[in-house]
Design a protein around this nucleic acid. Structure first.
Ligand SMILES: [Mn+2]
Ligand SMILES: [Mn+2]
Ligand SMILES: [Zn+2]
Ligand SMILES: [Zn+2]
Lengths: 132, 132
DNA sequence: ATTTTACTTTAAAATGATTCTAAACTACTT
DNA sequence: AAGTAGTTTAGAATCATTTTAAAGTAAAAT
């Protein structure tokens, strides 16, 4: 599908800026990236975009389900083009994230959910360090 | 054990400020808290401490193993007096964390660890929403 | 006990990611 | 073509956290 249609289906007005971002994010392999990473790629593609617009677009893309945000980073927001339900390896030395598809993990035993609540999602992070 | 000895054992010089914090954190039940939460409790106990010192002490307490930091919060750092290896429920509406002791979870299947690395810890977060 | 040394606390300034503001611009509707 | 609502932008503002450098304090050396 063309990116302009992905935007329209997501309920986003297809502006020049959103198309530039869609062309970078929505084709090609999945990736994890920061707002600044994306701005650098925009520059590298010969375009310009204010950092405010980069943040605005990322928020809109996320709220409409075109991307996700990784909930495991303190200093800088990390976004994810993989919108499936999945988990992550975290290289503790470099901060690099690697996807773990959901069917690679099975939880054999879960704690009892506090009463009045229901499980709305499980996030698993496996931290990695270099083998000595 | 007295808190002054806990500090000494941890290799921390027992200053007036560190003892005030130790008295708040290291006795009583476990808790999750921010730097500002702690500063408020220090005030409530009739003492004063600059926010810079609160952050400094928390970093020292953490590096010497007296507390931990929860690696799952974007805006504000959350610290944890529970230093055992454990997991968390996250109430998505309130941000409240609840401990899950490690023996309440069993991972039945794990993905293959990328070669050259070893598993240095698994963090599991079970997100909760109110039952309808 | 006094001096010396290294470590700690503090207020205030600096930092850095993110959000907000308000004016200029643009996509979509009429 | 004109009108309306949504978008982009530079720059200011925000907020958690860190840094700075001067003053204070605990431990070590005399
Ligand atoms: Mn850059
Ligand atoms: Mn407060
Ligand atoms: Zn991912
Ligand atoms: Zn905990």
């Amino acid at each position: 599908m063309k990116n302009i249609d992905k935007l329209r289906r997501a309920g986003l007005r297809p502006t020049k800026q959103r198309l530039i971002i869609a062309d970078i994010l929505l084709d090609g392999p999945n990736r994890h990236f920061t707002a600044e990473d994306l701005q650098d790629e925009i520059c590298a593609s010969g375009n310009y975009m204010s950092i405010g617009t980069v943040y605005n677009c990322l928020k809109r893309f996320k709220n409409s389900g075109l991307i996700k945000q990784v909930e495991y980073s303190k200093d800088t927001a990390i976004f994810d083009t993989n919108t499936t339900f999945h988990h992550h390896f975290l290289n503790e030395e470099t901060g690099e994230l690697i996807d773990i598809e959901n069917d690679k993990v099975i939880l054999g035993k879960l704690p009892e959910i506090p009463s009045g609540f229901l499980n709305s999602g499980v996030d698993i992070i496996i931290k990695l360090k270099k083998h000595t």
